[in-house]
């Protein structure tokens, strides 16, 4: 009963101009400390909404999200979000972007030197220390996302929320970043929730994969355990039976039982 993060029977509906749209219906999930959970589903199934509810960026209609038994009802740095399009502030350098988070979150708790050291440690963690004085416009998409991850990690969050973090990247860059995230997870033992629509990414990174049914009124269809020991190596896994079985299970869920039907709006 003492789950680290508990999503307790939440509903979410949006109202616009008198019409009510149910996005999520009766979603329950518990996540343990240090776990890496992916949420996968077709586009429009409300997985980003679910992440925003956990982040506190939107309010639940019914039910509750509890982090260490405290109800989440506003955003905060203990639930750091890495946004899909990196959303670095373009007028700040890489260093300043991370420092904005550090100086706010650790105000009064760290000295100036400690803050500097903490910014650099997190930049080095994502191998971006060399570009600290560059502006976001001067670095590649993959590098921006690395900085976005460093900014989130620098908040020392209890839970790290990744909203399709690699969706906009090319396949090679994506693989590099997935490896970086796995390495960070192994080193720091963060609790991570990741939204994705990439089956391979979900299987490679996750301890559990939460599969959402199609909306409206989406719910959790299935939860798949991925019992592959860590550290995981993408090349070795390419022929691994557990990996292939997990992958097949997700594919079957997405493309047989819950085929995406283009909504006729």
């Amino acid at each position: 009963m003492n789950a680290y993060l508990k999503i307790d029977h939440i509903d979410k509906s949006f109202e616009r101009g008198g019409t009510k749209t149910e996005v999520l219906k009766d979603v329950s999930l518990t996540i343990d400390k240090g776990e890496f959970v992916s949420i996968i589903g077709h586009s429009g199934c409300g997985k980003s909404t679910l992440l925003n509810l956990i982040a506190g960026l939107t309010r639940v209609t019914a039910g509750a999200v509890l982090l260490e038994n405290v109800e989440v009802n506003a955003p905060g740095p203990e639930r750091a979000v890495v946004f899909q399009n990196h959303s670095l502030l373009p007028w700040l350098t890489v260093y300043e972007n991370v420092n904005l988070a550090v100086s706010k979150v650790f105000a009064g708790r760290k000295t100036k030197a400690e803050k500097h050291e903490w910014v650099m440690r997190n930049l080095d963690l994502v191998q971006m220390g060399h570009a600290k004085d560059k502006r976001p416009a001067e670095i590649s998409g993959g590098m921006k996302q690395r900085v976005g991850i460093a900014r989130a990690l620098a908040m020392e969050p209890k839970i790290l929320l990744l909203d399709e973090p690699f969706g906009a990247l090319d396949a090679l860059t994506r693989a590099h970043l997935q490896d970086a995230v796995m390495e960070i997870h192994a080193r720091l033992g963060n609790t991570i929730i990741m939204i994705t629509h990439d089956v391979d990414e979900a299987v490679l990174l996750s301890d559990r994969i939460v599969m959402m049914t199609n909306g409206p009124a989406a719910r959790i269809g299935e939860v798949l355990e991925v019992p592959i020991p860590r550290p995981r190596d993408r090349i070795a896994l390419a022929a691994d039976r557990t990996y292939l079985k997990s992958r097949e299970a997700v594919l079957k869920f997405l493309y047989e039982r819950h085929r995406f039907v283009e909504a006729a709006e």
């Binding site: 905060g76 007028w91 904005l100 988070a101 908040m155």
Partner: peptide, 27 residues
């Protein structure tokens, strides 16, 4: 101002003055 910038400010819990100086004016 893009919603992303606002969301960052909310996650960081910037107060209105910090939001004004650090996000709103530069954006």
């Amino acid at each position: 101002i893009p919603d992303d910038y606002r969301n960052i400010a909310r996650v960081l819990r910037l107060n209105p003055l910090e939001f004004f100086i650090r996000i709103m004016v530069p954006a």
